[in-house]
């Protein structure tokens, strides 16, 4: 038996919003420690890794590990049936081929349940080692979304350069070029408004702006986004999911021919 209850169904809605641009379907691996998801987009350029810890749920029970392959379009339709203030419970029997979503209004006067068929998905799992990154940048998530949106008007690629002074985002194309420099915040009153750089060595990498834009669909999950970079390895874009977990996007860099 698997059962996970979350008082704020809006978190689940936001998680889905954050992954459905990149993925059509995904397997939710449920264990005693929580719910994990790892999936690459169809082109194998980016990867989504999500973790929701069991202790972040209001109730969590997982007697046996289960992997639930879900069509994210169908899941989106079902979660649209939940009001933001509803309590959501996901339930499945061991070895089940369906999952049930139960939505309860805060006063318990309306209770709805939606059963969704599960899918058997062939999954490729990548082993991502724990890595010390040469540069770790934290900035307001809204600012990052704005930068990605603005620069994607110029070209298909965004160059991210990180030095101890700050971080620079650049793009160039047919209409011209654009550079956005963010300096490290000197006085930090509010952490969620700060730009911070932890740098071991400067890094410059090039990425497809289309994927960066997709990652920013997670903006509503967190005030802050963290970018981790090292020379010639994938970028990691991480958003915390409240006190319950995180979503990380990995993006392979573009390399000069």
């Amino acid at each position: 038996m698997f059962e996970a209850r979350l008082v704020q169904s809006s978190i689940l809605k936001k998680v889905l919003e954050a992954i459905k641009d990149l993925l059509n379907e995904a397997t939710f691996d449920c264990s005693d420690s929580g719910i994990q998801l790892q999936a690459m987009d169809n082109s194998h350029v980016s990867l989504v890794s999500m973790n929701l810890r069991s202790d972040g749920f209001d109730k969590y029970r997982c007697d046996r590990n289960i992997s639930m392959g879900m069509n994210l379009g169908s899941m989106t339709k079902i979660l649209k049936c939940a009001a933001n203030e509803d309590v959501v419970t996901m339930k499945a029997q061991d070895n089940a081929d369906t999952v049930t979503f139960v939505f309860e209004s805060p006063n318990q006067e309306k209770v709805s349940d939606y059963e969704m068929k599960l899918m058997n998905l062939d999954q490729e799992h990548l082993g991502i080692p724990e890595t010390e990154y040469a540069c770790v940048v934290r900035l307001p998530a809204g600012e990052f979304a704005r930068i990605c949106r603005d620069l994607s008007q110029f070209g298909e690629s965004v160059v991210i350069s990180c030095t101890k002074e700050g971080v620079k985002f650049s793009s160039a194309g047919d209409i011209g070029s654009a550079n956005i420099k963010l300096a490290q915040t000197s006085n930090v009153d509010k952490e969620e408004l700060a730009v911070t750089v932890e740098m071991q060595e400067p890094v410059t990498l090039t990425f497809a702006s289309r994927y960066l834009n997709s990652f920013t669909k997670a903006t509503s999950l967190s005030n802050v986004v963290q970018l981790s970079m090292s020379p010639d390895v994938p970028l990691v874009v991480e958003y915390r999911i409240g006190e319950i977990g995180h979503i990380r996007y990995y993006l392979a860099p573009k390399i000069e021919d």
């Binding site: 194998h44 990548l126 991502i128 690629s157 497809a208 994938p234 392979a252 390399i255």
Partner: peptide, 14 residues
């Protein structure tokens, strides 16, 4: 123009 890499070039399958 730079060439887009694949994630398989960086991480092994497990």
């Amino acid at each position: 123009t730079p060439i887009q890499n694949d994630l398989h070039e960086f991480y092994a399958l497990v």
